[in-house]
Every structure is written in C-alpha cells, then in structure tokens.
Design a protein around this nucleic acid. Structure first.
Length: 499
DNA sequence: TCTGGGGTCCTAGGACCC
DNA sequence: TCTGGGGTCCTAGGACCC
C-alpha cells in the first residue's frame, strides 16, 4: 500500500472482439461475438454492442445466438491477438521493468520501479499517454486504473471501462470501497459471494465489520485473512515480472459424448501427444501426470500419478495417462478429456528413470524424435474446419478478405482490410483454386513492424504479399493458434506472459 | 444447441517419518 | 501398551480468473 497511485492496471476493452472489429471494417459499430462455434461453444468476448443484448463472456453460444441473432459470430484467432498483445506489452515495458501480464489483454505495471511517476499528477499523465500510445500503435482502446495497490488499481480500471482512466487517490479507498458489492474483490466469485450473502454480508464494509475471525471461520484460513485485509483496502502484493509455469495441460470437449472405450483411449493418447509437445516447447519436464474426465452429466474428476523423477518423454506420459484412464468408469459417456503435467522442473533434463521406462514400454525411437512443433501442429479437435468464420483469406482477383461463413460446399468472403472501407461479399466453391488462406493484415500501417503473427520468421510490416508466411502459420486451420506453442517457442525471454 | 480452455491457489485426509 | 505432534508428500476436489 503506497502513498502515491503508482501501480497501474491496464485492461484492453473487449479485446478479442475489438481486434476483430479493427481488422474488419464492416463489423465496426456492430455486435460481434468471439468464441467457440461448435455445438458446445461458449462466448470468449462480446463487443460492447453485443453486450447491450445481454451477451457476455462464458455464456453458451446457443444462448448468445438467441439474444443477438444478428451479431457476427467469429472463431478466436489467438496468434493475431498475441501479436497485438506483444505490441501493448512492449509499450508497458517502456514504462517499467516491473510488468506483470495476467493474460493477453491485461497487466500490472509498477510505475515507481520504472521511475516514471512518483505522485498523483505524474501517474495520471503516464496513464493518459499510455492510452494514447496504445491507440496509435494498435488502433485499439484500453482502460487504465491507477492506485496504491494492485487490488485497487484493478478495481479502478474496471470502473474506467470502456476507454477511460480512473485514479484512486490514496486515503480515499475505504470510503470508495465500503458501499460496493463483495463481488468486486478479487477472489470473491459466485460461490463465495453466495456464502457471504447467506451470512448476511453483501458489501465490502460488511466484511470489514464482521472481523477477521468471523471470515476465517466462514471461508478458511487463507481466504478469510486475505479477504479481511482486502476489505479494508489493505493489499501489499508486489508487482512480479516473471513467474514460473507450474503446469501444462490440454483438454478437448467433444461435440457429442464419447462412449466407445477404444475411441476414448485414442483421444487420451492424442491429448498426451499435444501435452508433451507443449511441455517440450516450453523447455520443461514434469513429475505428475493428470488425467481429467468430464462425464455426460458434467461431473468432473481427475486422477493423477507422480513419477519418481521428471520426464518429457511422450511414451512415459502416454502410458501414465492410459493407466489413469483404466481407473475411471466412463459408462454413460464422456464429454471432455484432458491430460496435464505438473510438478515442472526448471529445465528439461536427462532422466534415467524415464528412459528406462521408455525402453520397457517398447517405445519406438522414431516417435520420440518427432520435433515438438510437429506434434503440436497436428490437426486437433473435431471442431476444426477449413474455412473458419473470421479467418483471413486472399483471392487471386479480389485480394484480401475474411471468411464470413461456409457450408454446403460454398464459402462466403467479405473483401476488406483494416484500412479499407467496408467491403462487399462474394461466394465461392470451397475448393475454388483462386482462394487461399491469407495472413492477418496489420491494424495500423507501419506499426506492426517485426511482429510475426505466427511467431515465425520476421515479416515485413505493412507488406502483405500473398505468400508471406509458410503454409504452417498461414493455414486456415486454427491448430497453431490453439496449440500456442509457436508463440511460446518464438521469443526466449521476450514474452513474460504465458499463454 | 447448457455450460471452453488454460491456468492458479487452497483445503483436507491419509501415508509416512522422526 | 489407550492414543503426541509435527512436517512433508501425494491425491482429489473446488473456487476463481481471464
């Protein structure tokens, strides 16, 4: 808790949806929903126009479509968002060495450690200039909160949304916080909120009045004490730049429940491959293998096994996951499977135990020598389609555009790009030889320099020559996006945020 | 067309050890 | 020979966050 509001929290406004609107002129000012388009998809981000219809994050897509039938529904393009995120994080890095990314669109910055602000006036000036720089560099708006602690800075940025800045003057926090709902405090979700409500506490000042002992009795040691402190506006957590990953996991929800035991096993094996690909790409090995199963009725269970030493060997992880599956009853059907590795070692190391097990398992050396990238790039989920809505394409005659929809052997493309006027729509056969996957066009001319969208070779900034990227990154499939490995593998040390 | 995917942290019980 | 008390590791589950 410091005397000057020098902790900054940045939160990009409706990030995924705003990025799509910036890339697609015809969508500006219109409701846009980004999320899974399969039968079991949920909303990742809704534009502010879509929110007016009641659409919000984590809502099932079906419900969103009922509320906003005329919105544009797009599949997320993580590689594209990541490239924008890197531009933003670079701007933050110019303010301070202490930048703590929380996700692609959110971060804390310690302005005091950066020596760029020491009082209210300078902090506000830095925040406003940052917002202007972000707009100039990316074409997108972000909201800024400034306060003397992380918690208050985050609450401030929430109040600033959209496209604003709120500075909480130290000394005013208790008065500001007191009347607000307990739900604004970090760590108070639906369950804790309901728990507190049943105990008669709905506002932050209710918590402060209840006292620490009462909160600990209700919520447990850790949660109770931290909530009591937060309710008084007290929070001295430092901004931490680098945090070590603790686990790596992959999971798939299937369009229809799986019943066939053989199919379930093969899916678990494929998940193990993807998981190991990601594990290796991040330069880790791990000791504990976790299998996750969500049944037809949404009940979820995990089974784990801890090895004697860390491994990054595919055979070892696959065998362990298989053993864990043996202990799970799947009658009734399975809607989700996941494989994870935790207990990560700092670096990949030679592991005699793992190699031994590998040999016993009859692992063929060939599979082990497959590069991690190749494993990750394998076609993934059942939801993969050739022409996913929202993806960039290029037509030999009409130029750059994006997929508006496809089906019945046809694909509809709108031809426009960030700097153009809203474009018009044309329809082609899905196998039209003049149509190919395209690369994302930089949102701001000249601002995207040195920001390869897929994390591959550096590409010319404003240049959007047809075959700029190798097929792997430019493929319409979102496999590379979903894997996330290219981004992780691309910049050793330069990307403080993990996926 | 009811509920994604990737994470983090905490709790609680049992095993095991001193 | 009627019960201590910690500490650590492992497993499973749950809440929460974006």
């Amino acid at each position: 808790m410091r005397a000057a509001p020098t902790i900054l929290h940045l939160d990009m406004d409706a990030f995924f949806a705003a990025a799509e609107q910036a890339a697609k002129p015809s969508l500006r000012g219109k409701p846009v929903v980004v999320g899974g388009l399969g039968p079991r998809g949920v909303v990742a981000t809704a534009s502010y126009e879509a929110r007016r219809f009641g659409v919000h994050s984590a809502m099932p897509m079906g419900q969103a479509r009922r509320l906003a039938p005329n919105a544009a529904y797009l599949v997320p393009r993580f590689a594209f968002y990541r490239s924008i995120s890197e531009q933003v994080m670079r701007l933050l890095g110019g303010l301070s060495p202490l930048v703590e990314p929380l996700s692609l669109d959110e971060a804390f910055v310690d302005l005091e450690a950066g020596g760029v602000a020491g009082d209210t006036a300078s902090a506000r000036a830095v925040g406003e200039r940052l917002r202007a720089d972000i707009l100039a560099t990316t074409g997108l708006t972000g909201s800024v909160g400034l306060a003397g602690s992380k918690m208050l800075a985050k609450i401030a940025s929430e109040e600033a949304k959209p496209d604003g800045l709120v500075l909480m003057e130290p000394g005013t926090e208790r008065a500001l916080l007191g009347p607000k709902s307990v739900r604004i405090l970090p760590g108070v979700g639906p369950a804790t909120g309901e728990h507190l409500r049943r105990a008669g506490m709905t506002t932050v000042s209710d918590l402060a009045e209840a006292g620490e002992d009462e909160l600990v009795r209700l919520l447990g040691r850790a949660h109770g004490t931290s909530l009591y402190r937060m309710a008084q506006g007290y929070d001295d957590r430092p901004v931490v730049a680098e945090r070590d990953a603790k686990s790596v996991s992959v999971e798939d929800t299937f369009a229809v429940d799986l019943h066939d035991r053989v199919r379930i096993r093969s899916e678990v094996e494929r998940l193990a491959e993807r998981c190991v690909g990601r594990l290796r790409a991040s330069g880790h090995s791990g000791r504990t293998i976790v299998l996750k199963v969500r049944r037809f009725d949404f009940s979820t269970l995990t089974r784990s096994e801890t090895l004697r030493g860390p491994t990054d060997a595919l055979g070892v992880v696959r065998e362990a996951a298989g053993r864990l599956l043996d202990s799970v009853d799947t009658t009734g059907g399975v809607r989700l499977l996941g494989v994870g590795v935790s207990g990560l070692a700092d670096y990949t190391q030679e592991d005699l135990f793992a190699q031994e097990a590998e040999v016993r398992a009859g692992e063929d050396v060939e599979a082990e020598s497959v590069p991690a990238e190749a494993v990750v790039a394998e076609p993934a989920g059942p939801a993969e389609r050739s022409w996913a809505p929202g993806h960039d394409v290029r037509h030999a005659v009409y130029g750059a555009g994006w997929v508006q929809g496809s089906g019945l052997g046809r694909v509809t493309v709108r031809f426009e790009e960030p700097g153009s006027a809203p474009g018009r729509v044309r329809t082609f056969a899905v196998d039209d030889p003049e149509l190919e996957a395209g690369e994302a066009v930089p949102l701001v001319r000249g601002a995207g320099a040195g920001l390869p969208v897929g994390g591959g070779a550096p590409s010319a900034a404003a240049g959007r020559g047809g075959a700029g990227l190798p097929g792997g990154s430019a493929a319409p499939s979102s496999a590379a996006d979903r894997g996330g490995a290219p981004g992780l593998a691309a910049g050793p040390g330069s990307h403080p945020h993990h996926l």
